[in-house]
Design a protein around this nucleic acid. Structure first.
Lengths: 225, 225
DNA sequence: TTTTATATATGATATTTGTCATGTTTTCTT
DNA sequence: AAGAAAACATGACAAATATCATATATAAAA
């Protein structure tokens, strides 16, 4: 099993602010896991007793609504921490996490890392920064949900996924989502999401090869009204 | 001017975790302000160089959408801190703050408090907890916006305001909002908000006296579909 | 490969919500 | 107190989105 001190991944998240000694201790108690595409990492309401550091892959964080639909609230990729909030509040998870492709994660028990949070101000300030960033993003999503059309929201989601998670060699979006996932990000019916994607295709803003989506006109997508 | 060490208000926010010495220092550099109903505390895009501790009154935090509507994202009352995020990230404010009634606030310069955030782990952990709570609420709002009807959202907003901010002696909601404010919380057109309020009135779930709203059937409101 | 299941796609229609028009009430100003 | 301005209210209609039905394509299983 790899050592945290030498792990490159931590450069991308708050763990980089831990001291070498702290990292060595964390390294000793972490467990490495492989998670298969589609499987659940944790459930809504589950008590998390630790955080996950995502070494590879991507997952979606969603919450089940009363109408039976799963709203995707955030996506977490390679390099980021998963379940940060559970470190701070003692509540159970508000969200469900599901792997969107095969993942590799390290699980760090809460008990080991909570002391660092209390003692290492640089680390806790980093976590604070992350959380502040997430909060800003969440506020922006609220505004978009409330004030923009499905077409605008979907166009923005495509741009976001393109810019944040990149593309395959053939130019298609590297994160492969079902039409239902797109609907659940945007907060609409699956049929509506499909319809809008067809429309964007007709307008030559995107093209599709099976499930794969390729952005043909990024600037155009950003201008969708 | 009052002294922070003796101020009761701080019991309700993270400032309670500061030591006596820290509070005395803060007390020496804070400025007390009265803010009139309707006036702007800070604008979207403005650089905040401090936090506000709300001693009295209530304000709304909103963000202007491209379609010209102001989406209300959060309300901050007596006892809470305002502009916490500006302490952590060096970015300009993502939201605008407007007083909903006459307010009294203390402004604490960032320079004075940032050191405490770095040195006093109990304080920073408290801020972290606050932020984690805000993030959870924001996620829940996203789900509601995406998956619930205007009527459900408005009913929930009324319940939320009732439970969080209380009622006047005559039973009307103590926070007085315009119909436009309600529309901007729920993310709908003002006319739609008015229409739904009329509907809730017909269903005897609420009653109105001018702008004032009284909840007549709390359980009923919670059950709105 | 053939069958079966699942995901994608599209039409028809219903429902929800937004927009514009217009009237009424309340609040503010002088 | 009178007039002006703003907020509230409601109808009529338009636009956006959801739902149901059904067809086709793709992927999974036998």
């Amino acid at each position: 099993m790899g050592k945290c001190e030498q792990c490159i991944i931590k450069q991308f998240n708050s763990l980089k602010s831990l001291t070498k000694d702290e990292l060595i201790r964390i390294s000793g108690c972490k467990t490495s896991k492989k998670i298969k595409k589609g499987s659940i990492i944790f459930e809504e309401g589950e008590v998390l007793n630790g955080v996950y550091c995502v070494k590879d892959g991507i997952c979606k964080l969603s919450k089940l609504s009363e109408n039976g639909k799963d709203q995707i609230v955030k996506m977490v990729v390679k390099g980021q921490l998963l379940g940060q909030r559970s470190l701070i509040s003692d509540e159970s998870s508000n969200l469900q996490a599901v792997a969107l492709n095969d993942m590799e994660v390290c699980f760090i028990p809460k008990s080991e890392i909570i002391a660092d949070l209390q003692k290492n101000p640089k680390f806790s300030f980093d976590v604070l920064k992350d959380m502040a960033h997430d909060l800003k993003e969440a506020d922006n999503i609220i505004v978009n949900m409330a004030q923009k059309s499905v077409k605008q929201r979907l166009a923005e989601a495509l741009v976001y996924i393109h810019d944040s998670f990149g593309v395959n060699p053939d130019g298609t979006l590297s994160v492969l989502l079902s039409r239902e996932d797109y609907a659940n990000i945007v907060g609409t019916a699956t049929e509506s999401a499909i319809r809008v994607l067809s429309q964007l295709k007709k307008e030559k803003l995107i093209s599709t090869v099976g499930k794969y989506i390729k952005i043909e006109n990024l600037e155009g997508l950003k201008r969708v009204e």
